[in-house]
């Protein structure tokens, strides 16, 4: 398989090139944080309900709200915003580094150290 055809065969699970590999790595981390929080909070509430009926869920109050309301209704949207900020910060730094890398190849050095 030549290099061009290997480029054509890329996928999310088979990223090619440093840029895509880095991007896919951070996407996987963000999506893991996203999925674990969504599934984890619901399983937590479900297990509490199944194990202790409503007794424990009544007593667990956080920021004035029952714990399951606070986790799903307040914290999860905030967590999504945090994940988006983390992704953007990484992408911004990554794109600056890529730009610097590409500039090194594109700008020819001037003679006698002129600027």
């Amino acid at each position: 398989m030549d290099e061009t055809s290997s480029n054509k065969d890329l996928s999310f699970f088979k990223p090619q090139g440093a840029t895509m590999r880095g991007e896919v790595r951070v996407i996987k981390l963000i999506l893991s944080g996203w999925l674990i929080a969504i599934v984890g909070f619901q399983l937590f509430a479900y297990l509490l309900e199944v194990s202790y009926s409503e007794l424990l869920l009544e007593d667990l109050v956080f920021f004035n709200l029952p714990i399951q309301f606070w986790l799903s209704g307040q914290l999860l949207p905030l967590w999504f915003i945090i994940l988006c900020v983390l992704f953007n910060v990484w992408m911004d730094r990554h794109s600056v580094q890529s730009l610097e890398g590409s500039l090194r190849f594109r700008i020819k050095p001037l003679k006698n150290g002129e600027e």
Binding site: I27, P77, L83
Partner: peptide, 21 residues
């Protein structure tokens, strides 16, 4: 009641998918 939280989580969590993918 609490079932409606699926709307809150679904309509905000979708933006993470949209942004990263």
């Amino acid at each position: 009641g609490y079932f409606a939280m699926a709307y809150v989580v679904g309509w905000t969590g979708g933006y993470v998918l949209l942004l990263v993918l």
